[in-house]
Design a protein around this nucleic acid. Sequence first.
DNA 1: ATTTGCCTACCTACCGGAAGGTTTGTACAT
DNA 2: ATGTACAAACCTTCCGGTAGGTAGGCAAAT
Lengths: 181, 181
Amino acid sequence: MTTRETIIQTADELIRDKGYNAISYVDIANVVGIRKPSVHHHFPHKADLGVAVIEFHIAQLEKVRESYKNRPPAEQLDRFFAIYQEIKKQNRICIVGSLSTDFNTLEAAVQEKLEEFSEHMIKWVSQFLKEGKAEGTFHFKQSARTKAIMLISGMLAIVQLCRLTNDNDFALMMKALRQEL
Amino acid sequence: MTTRETIIQTADELIRDKGYNAISYVDIANVVGIRKPSVHHHFPHKADLGVAVIEFHIAQLEKVRESYKNRPPAEQLDRFFAIYQEIKKQNRICIVGSLSTDFNTLEAAVQEKLEEFSEHMIKWVSQFLKEGKAEGTFHFKQSARTKAIMLISGMLAIVQLCRLTNDNDFALMMKALRQEL
DNA sequence: ATTTGCCTACCTACCGGAAGGTTTGTACAT
DNA sequence: ATGTACAAACCTTCCGGTAGGTAGGCAAAT
């Protein structure tokens, strides 16, 4: 892995652990094992790094979407939940949840990239929900988009809420969301 | 309203607008119309202010709970949604959503107070859901606590997500959550 | 074959500004 | 006189960002 990639992944983990405004170039440099100005060499401004982190998430999501596009909707749903199970395992939260909280303090370029990522996410989930409904696997009254937002919201929120309540609530939430499909 | 109360409410609004780690004593002082050291006079450390803000939310919630305790569950549900409609109108997010993102950077006292607030919230919603189910107004398979967490999660997340997508998603989400009761 | 030139990746040292917080003092009401 | 509410001035620490430089790789020109 290149230094550039290591910086992106480190920044991503720190952002989803402590929040965008709580982490600094020094924090990232310390984890990567280089000095602060070297991080600036790769990402002159914090906004450049923020954009790169979100682009990394978009690329990851597109890879998942591509490799699952011909699989049954039920499997795609499993894959969707697996994303949040991984996040929960790391005791972090998702990038949308983390950055939407700080949204009003983000540089315009980061804001736009985040909107782009959320569009990708909603589009993917909507699509396999629609497919699943058409073939009779899923059952819901709302539009596919609304149901997608309900699933995404539910998982986005439960990883945040679990920090305050009970780890067990995560599994209960996931099960309940499945029941309503 | 006393200066102390004005500081608390200003801090609350700023926290739910920009996030805990993005706001400073100077920001608060500028809005209130006093100087930074005067804010320190009322709240020596940022943690004191954080705790006070959450205690303010607990007190507000208890007032609502008390005044609605003998009303029908359907009305209590309406009151629950009204909380988030108010938040949405202000283009802010809820205190739990805001602070849970920054949770790992919060002082221990603030973390504990936030846990306390989320307990209150879950307890209230669970209670009127349980009542509503018993009298046949609500219908759900899960435990009242799980369903409460689903409602809270849904609203917590949609105010965050709406910052990135469409304002219209808020109403759709609320309607969908109602349908599943 | 060696020099010249440019590139990437990293460094030390530093900047202005803003953060949370302290000291000290004043104005005023009780 | 004592406590409350404020603020000027200041402190230390850390922030994002910059200046200037070093070491090594690569490739064309000599």
